[in-house]
Design a protein around this nucleic acid. Sequence first.
DNA 1: CATAATGGCCGTATTCTATTCAGCAGAGAA
DNA 2: TTCTCTGCTGAATAGAATACGGCCATTATG
Lengths: 179, 179
Amino acid sequence: MDEETDGILQNRPAARDLDAIDRRILGVLVDDATISYAELGDRVGLSPPAAHERVKRLRRSGAIRNTVAIIDPRAVKKALLAFVHIDTRGWGKTPELMAVSQYPEVEEIHTVAGDTCMLLKIRTEDTRALEGLLARLYETPGVTSTRSYVVLSTYLERPVQPGITETWPTPKHMAEPLY
Amino acid sequence: MDEETDGILQNRPAARDLDAIDRRILGVLVDDATISYAELGDRVGLSPPAAHERVKRLRRSGAIRNTVAIIDPRAVKKALLAFVHIDTRGWGKTPELMAVSQYPEVEEIHTVAGDTCMLLKIRTEDTRALEGLLARLYETPGVTSTRSYVVLSTYLERPVQPGITETWPTPKHMAEPLY
DNA sequence: CATAATGGCCGTATTCTATTCAGCAGAGAA
DNA sequence: TTCTCTGCTGAATAGAATACGGCCATTATG
């Protein structure tokens, strides 16, 4: 349904500021995007077509990136979470980033202020799979480990989720290997 | 539309294993949950009612936790990301966790293997808001800082996102202050 | 072995929702 | 004032979700 897919390092044209109703719409949809436009309109005080028009505009402007199902990792046997720092001194950035972002187990990549590393959030089935992934990762030219730690137990993960400063294209083959 | 909301530390009844079609459905919906059941059925080789039945079952079993809109933090002026460790020695866990998970800026809470800390992922508007949040956080009894770092630039954030080992209820007032 | 029961699928029918459209009202500009 | 633009409403239409009856394969059961 999204007619445009993200390009490499594409920056959106800077959307117009949101008003109060827009923010309330986002607040509703970030919790549950399965409601009807009639219901949404009720909650924010608009008619169904008006609510629909707002949502369309929010999608066009990029404020709503997309609408997705949130999967329980236990159901697909992907419940081990790890945060891994990799040293990025001497990187050419783009090709290495592309390589790293190819792995479907890598959910997030951030640069860290005041440091020469990047932080990866990685979700795998078990420690064996994690070790395998790290081994493959460190074969990537320019990637070396600094430190990492594994998550024992997760108490909160909120459904808020987006590319921020620069957005990398989500590898489309992800759907296959992950699930 | 979800008839049941998560309870405190509630564990789902352990869903039956997923077959190949279930996994393909999840793989589709985790990318885009706005498609019709006709389209979904096409992609996985089922009729629309059969695809619908599968998705209903996946929802009932908890494999699909919910369906949400992914918001661009820039649009709502929440683009500063920080990872913060807090020391948790001497915690009673539950009340402190409840207090910490009340802040809508706190997106994730994890315990770390082999350490006495918890890792928080925090998203705020700017450094001022982050400092304010940290100040309030450290007023929480039992919460002390160990180390933290701020994310300069995010290259990848994938729409996969769930409560894992134990699930905390998402504070419902979140919708108001955040958006 | 025969046969009943079950689970999952399909095609059709119906209900409900999304979407389009015409017209109206308020805000801002000339 | 008057024009224009934007965003709203309610009604009409197109389209999707959902319910239902029947079919087939697999598995349990006498």
